[in-house]
Amino acid sequence: MKSNDEFYIGYFPKAPKSIAKWIMTSVIILVISIAILSLLQARNQENLQANNFEFGKITELTGILQTTPVPNLVIHNGQDINGNDLFQSVLLIGLGKFGSDSLVSFFKNKIDLPLNQTEVTLRGTLIYSDGKTLLELTEEENALVKSVPLDSSITISSKKIGRIELNGEMIDSKCYFGVMNPGYGKPHRSCAIRCVSGGIPPVFWSTTEDKATQYYIVLGKNGEAINQQVLPYIADPICIKGEVYQYLDWHIIQTDIENEITAKGCSGF
């Protein structure tokens, strides 16, 4: 039997011609395959929300600092057609995966007057999408630029709307509205759990029949923070029941964590 001379040895300077030709063909096929695979995988990504996190850009906002229902800054946002003042609530968030409760307490102690008699200016990084705005207090304790006494005190209160029962998902407000995209669903669950555990207000989002998305800040039945208790439900499809309140441009849902949040869909859905 004659010898088959075709044999590849890697440390020889050149591969045998027929093997080199075969490998060249294989490389061409690989180039085409890699290009197609990359294109398909990139093209397949789900569309992203128009989220905004103005990373690296510090903005100053002036308004009334509020500690309830969650730490927020109430800012003047123009007037309606009847000339009435409009206000917007900007949720205040800490740096990283932390809420702003301790920072807001620190600011409160620094300001001599009651909060509703003081106008404060805060610096931070804006987070916004879908009509909701949050401010990350990036510079932490240095985020309070100034506080000016007001001529009169301002009262901002929530208005009770009624009970609801909705299917949806609970997420952390910081990632969902801008820092991550997407900031919902299973791939983001661990991150959302860390954020809520760190004090960032949990928000429940639900889509109506006409595809509009509604957002509800989640609190306990007495309006208390229940961040640690809701952790098992974060980023999962859940049914939530509770009392809904209107707080400026936000909805609040006060729910009984023991009885009114279930991992299964709501009855009737």
Partner: peptide, 26 residues
């Protein structure tokens, strides 16, 4: 070369599709 080809197409297509909606980390 193949790695650069893959990354260039993936990143290029993602930026065309999403623009600045997709963060660098993602």
């Amino acid at each position: 070369g193949l790695i650069i080809l893959f990354l260039a197409i993936f990143i290029g297509v993602s930026l065309v599709l999403f623009g600045d909606k997709i963060t660098g980390e993602t």
